[in-house]
Design a protein around this nucleic acid. Sequence first.
DNA 1: GTCTATAGTGTGATAGAC
DNA 2: GTCTATCACACTATAGAC
Lengths: 208, 208
Amino acid sequence: MGIQERRTELRQQLRDRILEVSREIVAREGFGALSMRRIAEAISYSPASLYLHFEGRADIARALREEGHTQLLEAFAPHASIADPVARLRSMGRAYVEYGLAAPQTYRMMFGEPMPVSGANERAAPALAPIVDAFIELRAAGRLPREHAPLASAEAFWAMLHGMVALRLARPDALQTAPDALVDLSLHIWFDAMTPAAPRHRGKRTPT
Amino acid sequence: MGIQERRTELRQQLRDRILEVSREIVAREGFGALSMRRIAEAISYSPASLYLHFEGRADIARALREEGHTQLLEAFAPHASIADPVARLRSMGRAYVEYGLAAPQTYRMMFGEPMPVSGANERAAPALAPIVDAFIELRAAGRLPREHAPLASAEAFWAMLHGMVALRLARPDALQTAPDALVDLSLHIWFDAMTPAAPRHRGKRTPT
DNA sequence: GTCTATAGTGTGATAGAC
DNA sequence: GTCTATCACACTATAGAC
């Protein structure tokens, strides 16, 4: 079966090559610039050949999206071992924004404009799971107000992170505050009440 | 100058009609479905005529975007008179999300995918101003931690609101929590420490 | 102002020869 | 598996007649 293997190996190589040039086109000019013709030209094949490896443009998009989700999870990995859930969420939050700003076009494909929907087994946001886990731990430790469900909290946290990334990507000039400063401020508001070591630095009150 | 007036009046009417059908097409099928041909067909004119009233598709997009910003400011108006800045921000925040979810396609044009840039005098987010104002008041009243600049706080607050809207619009199935619940939770996290009447409802601490 | 006609370019996808 | 050739569209924008 040496021949058989060689065959599927070559096939896999071409598939990877297609994804490779697609990644580059998207990174440079955005998903809108990704067309079957351009991919074909870049790999020196005819457009028709692409359909032997992918069902169409939407299928390639799905593959790129999945790559992105994997990368995002990898960006979380170094912080997954942080014991304190709040410290972990802080680190993950920073990593999330960092990833989004570093891979703007991929991020857009993952969470921006709606994409031609693919199979039902494509999870919308695999990266949400570790965030939910951290909130579950917080809750178990009694460090989350009782009325805040872990899932809802995680989604709110995610939405906040997404807002900072999406706004910066779509309207670069709309935000005057530097990305890092905005992230720190948001994390401060979320977590300075729940850090065990350093309890909330309370704002001054009006002398009512 | 009766004739002159009648002429510009008719001209204005046609311009309005173009915007009207454009609004409908965008609302129903999104900005991507808006083409000069379709507009022309809808108003029973030839595509060429549109160029007498707008410079092109991007110009029409700009007009629709401006309408959206005006509507968003109008959605804020009822709450502008609320005296307490925190209560005002809560109301405006709810109104913001409500607007975004009610006018998804317009919202997308305003804050979603980057649009063919127009004149430099198109402000990216007129609605940010009243939010900044509220944070300035908060700061003046000593109810904002000293290290939080009003502008940065307003931008972080805006990003949070945007995140909830944008995520819901782009990935309707990704968030399991109902929009209202998510908004309330986020507002709770932001403001329950700074409401003067009802000081922070503190979560339980682990008995360290 | 409005039209017809068209230039010029792009697209996804497929049939059928090799 | 790969190609050429092509279908069947869509688009923005403009020239030039009326």
